[in-house]
Write a protein that binds this DNA or RNA. Structure first.
Length: 842
RNA sequence: GCGGACGUGGCGGAAUGGUAGACGCAGGGGACUUAAAAUCCCUUGAGCUUGCUCGUGCGGGUUCGAGUCCCGCCGUCCGUACCA
């Protein structure tokens, strides 16, 4: 006799304990089974598990459990991306130590994850903030340095002149420091860089092998790398051997050039500024503002006419003015461009502002006039015009012709450029991996000897003043130079946290104490079969992880080139917002879902019963208070209900709107399944062919859906089979369908499945195999064929599968409905798609 | 600014170029009950003349046939190199 209701409050933790005790989800390195490495992006330990994490890890969990049922040895690990700014912010705001804060958060979040019943191998847990992890990272960083892939150069940061500290882009709000409110400026610092540009071509070409990655992610990475063929050309100063080298991807428009613009930090600009105070002032002006691309690109186009002119390389008599301009980036190309305003929007904006000539050199349709009106540049296709010997060529022909001429005459060369820049990894912050170098006045930059690793962060630091505590720590940075033994100082910058997440998957697969990993073990587990995480990581994290893997392969540390064989980017969890306008200041005040009573069309505040405004459905965020706490949901409805919700309805790559009604529906479905599982009768007899067919078709389709991560479709099919099974009369077939259903939902609702399966006396559902299907049952013997007249549906026919075309046509024409629709007109054509449709064109 | 995606009933969505709206939620009606909860059954795109018309953000196009392919718009979201 089964209990009437499934009680997650007692069952969830009981099964979680049993899985733990039996070490059900421990990955066996020595296993002879085929292997599967399922990985979700590890979380930042912010304090509480966010519902977005639940969605991410539920998807991975279903796949991991499913793979196990299909006979794979599964590696499904979890860890913590534990360095980063929020810990330092907490230290400043609450006076807690970043380490203590982070480790407490990890303990809390780990307990939360356990309550959700994820099939994780906790024996491999790691946190990037522990020396046992980052010490190995320092060692790998030194290896990359030895291979010439690490170097130092100057680079700009956001500088807060009041707090005298470097700001992250996130800490710059409307051009001002978030704490001081001071106008932010750019400041140059000497920083550490990784030579990712050495891998630009490899990373680009590697994308084509990642055919199970989303097309959009590959495209975004391709555009980010931004390979372009162009011309590097020298524009000589008038009557001088000196000149300015520019890079252009549009050499075809060279005759349309009307000015040359160089970056504010271009050596020529810097040199001229020494004798030209107005230019020095302009360059200082360019230092205002932050360093983000969006900010640089949308800033007003500003220029300074240096008074110098250069010769047009194709027509020495034409002289072009040289401007210093804020929209030219020293980091890209040569830090100098020629402006062709008619065919580049930025150049046009600039030309209109400074009243420079605008000449059309690419025909726009029939328009070949050299005069160019309006404020919209033309960047489309067309023949070259107003360009002497280039006239009449296509853009591609003209590009080749100009490059050929430049090479022949010696003023330019064909060049491949990348938009991708080297990766600056220095951060002027405490809570990160110390960069293992020592600055010695005599020996220069000296790597920390490997036997002195890890370089451990000091614990005794203070956050009472802004800036990097490592810099003002009384003793930590003072060391003797490993080379000459004289007093020297440690590097006080720490590594970008993206470095920590660029190799953690390797450490999951293999974690010896004395080295970062064992290459043989890496070979057995990598690449990750399925990686799942947010689309926000489409470019940076995923590109950096690909780069580290290739860099480590290049220096012979591992034998894998691409870390993630398959990638899936899931959508966010969203929720509507509730607010009222505060009459005092006109600003909205937000309320959490717990404070609000939600009716059909309206919502009221529980405390006063008066209405609140229902806002748009947006990403859950603390500031909008539209968050729900996974822990509370688990306590109210159980882990399986929230897991089921995460998989239902929305396709996993799209946003999932949270709703109270939805989670209640899921909790009801858990009970509905429980009642059905309770009706299992191992001794029932009798056959139900239709149900057998439905069962095997569902098992087959759900397997395919899980493998392609189409969880919402799998869920819909499970609903259908559930309804069909409930309606069926008792039979052996019905019992088989119930058992199959139980195993289908086992990866999704594992606690319910265990509780029910225990009564079958066949061991643990977590160790059960996926139900087998009879291929003969997968094909239907009857099909429904649509009958259209001129593309509009008029009738349907139920016929034997595989009926020949001419018979289908005859049957379709015999239909009353079809004859009425034809209405005596002549039948001109009949299209027959066997087993699907007949379309009559009359 | 640049790069990428998305847009289908009241809502989330389904649909190898071939019957638009599977499945779920919400709503309406009913059964059971002293009552409620739970459960079960029926019903639900719009319009009208009840067997027809219109319907997949907007405007064009290709096709026997378009939610799906092409061109041009509009709107929303994500990334933009120091948030993770």
């Amino acid at each position: 006799m089964t209990a009437e209701r499934f009680d997650p409050a007692t069952a969830d933790s009981r099964w979680q304990r049993i899985w733990d005790e039996r070490q059900c989800f421990r990955a066996d390195d020595a296993s002879t089974k085929p292997r599967s490495f399922v990985l979700e992006m590890f979380p930042y330990p912010s304090g509480r598990i966010h519902i977005g994490h639940v969605r991410n890890y539920t998807m991975g969990d279903v796949l991991a459990r499913y793979k196990r049922m299909r006979g794979y040895e599964v590696l499904h690990p979890m860890g913590w991306d534990a360095f980063g700014m929020p810990a330092e912010n907490a230290a400043m705001e609450k006076g807690v130590h970043p380490g203590g804060w982070t480790r407490d958060n990890i303990a809390n979040m780990k307990a939360q994850l356990k309550r959700l019943g994820f099939a994780l191998d906790w024996s491999r847990e790691l946190a990037t903030c522990e020396p046992e992890y980052y010490g190995h990272e320092q060692s790998l960083f030194l290896d990359l340095y030895a291979a010439g892939l690490v170097y130092r150069k100057e680079s700009a940061v956001n500088w807060d002149p009041v707090d005298m500290t470097v700001l992250a882009n996130e800490q710059v709000i409307d051009g001002r420091g978030w704490r001081s409110g001071a106008l932010v400026e750019k400041r140059k610092l000497s920083q550490w860089f990784l030579r990712i540009t050495d891998f630009a071509d490899e990373l680009l070409e590697g994308l084509s092998s990642l055919d199970t990655w989303p097309e959009k992610v590959r495209l975004m990475q391709e555009n980010w790398i931004g390979k372009s063929q162009g011309l590097r050309a020298k524009f000589h100063f008038v009557d001088s051997e000196d000149g300015i080298e520019v890079f252009t991807t549009r050499p075809d428009t060279l005759f349309g050039a009307s000015f040359v613009a160089i970056a504010a930090d271009h050596p020529f600009a810097q040199g001229m500024a020494a004798n030209l105070p107005e230019l020095a002032a302009f360059i200082a002006e360019c230092k205002r503002g932050g360093t983000t691309a969006a900010e640089l690109e949308t800033a007003d186009k500003l220029g300074f006419n240096t008074g110098y002119t250069v010769e047009h390389p194709l027509k020495k008599s034409r002289h072009l003015p040289v401007y210093v301009a804020n929209f030219v980036l020293m980091d890209y190309g040569t830090g100098a461009v020629f402006g062709c305003p008619a065919h580049d929007q930025r150049d046009l904006d600039f030309a209109r502002k400074y009243d420079l000539p605008v000449t059309r050199v690419v025909a726009e349709g029939d328009d070949t006039a050299s005069r160019f009106d309006g404020d919209e540049a033309y960047s489309g296709p067309g023949r070259i015009v107003n360009s002497e010997w280039l006239d009449g060529m296509t853009i591609a022909e003209a590009k080749a012709a100009v490059i050929a001429r430049a090479q022949h005459d010696g003023w330019g060369t064909a060049e491949t450029q990348y938009r991708l820049r080297d990766w600056g990894v220095s951060r002027q912050r405490y809570w990160g991996t110390p960069i293992p170098f020592i600055h010695c006045e005599i020996c220069g930059i000296v790597p920390v000897p490997k036997k002195q690793l890890p370089v451990v962060l000091p614990e005794d630091v203070s956050f009472d003043v802004p800036g990097n505590p490592l810099l003002r720590h009384p003793t930590w940075k003072h060391v003797d130079c490993p080379q000459c033994g004289k007093p020297a100082t440690r590097e006080t910058d720490t590594l970008d946290t993206f470095v920590d997440s660029s190799w953690y998957f390797l450490r999951f697969a293999s974690q010896p104490a004395d080295r970062p990993f064992d290459p043989e073990e890496i070979k057995r587990w990598l690449p990750v079969e399925q990686y799942i995480g947010g689309i926000e990581h489409a470019i940076l994290h995923l590109l950096y992880a690909r780069f580290w893997t290739r860099a480590l392969a290049r220096i012979g540390k591992i034998d894998v080139k691409e870390p993630f064989a398959s990638l899936f980017t899931q959508g966010m969890v969203t929720h509507e917002t509730y607010s009222r306008i505060d009459s005092a200041n006109g600003q909205p005040v937000f309320f959490s879902p717990q404070e609000v009573e939600r009716g059909g069309e309206a919502a009221t505040l529980k405390v006063d019963g008066a209405p609140v405004e229902i806002g748009r459905v947006i990403k859950m965020s603390k500031s909008k208070k539209n968050v729900v706490d996974p822990d509370e949901i688990v306590a109210t409805y159980g882990a399986d209900a929230i897991r089921w919700f995460m998989l239902s309805d929305s396709p996993p790559e799209r946003d999932l709107p949270w709703s109270e009604a939805g989670i209640e529906g899921c909790a009801r479905f858990v009970q509905r399944q429980w009642r059905l599982f309770g009706q299992y009768d191992a001794h029932a007899s009798g056959e139900d062919k239709a149900l057998d067919r439905k069962r095997d078709q569902t098992v087959h389709a759900v397997a395919q859906d899980i493998e392609s991560l189409g969880f919402n479709k799998a869920v819909a099919r499970i609903y259908e089979l559930t309804s069909a099974t409930e309606k069926a009369a008792p039979s052996a077939s019905r019992s088989a369908a119930i058992k199959a259903l139980l195993l289908l939902v086992a990866p999704m609702m594992p606690h319910l499945a265990e509780e029910a399966f225990a009564r079958f006396g066949e061991g643990l559902a977590a160790e059960a195999l996926w139900p087998a299907v009879d291929p003969a049952l997968l094909v239907d013997d009857e099909v429904t064929v649509a009958v259209q007249v001129k593309g509009k549906l008029r009738d349907t026919l139920t016929v034997a599968k595989g009926m020949p075309k001419d018979e289908l046509e005859k049957l379709a024409l015999a239909s009353d409905k079809v004859q009425r629709a034809i209405d005596g007109a002549e039948v001109k054509k009949v299209i027959v798609v066997p087993d699907r449709l007949v379309n009559i064109v009359a």
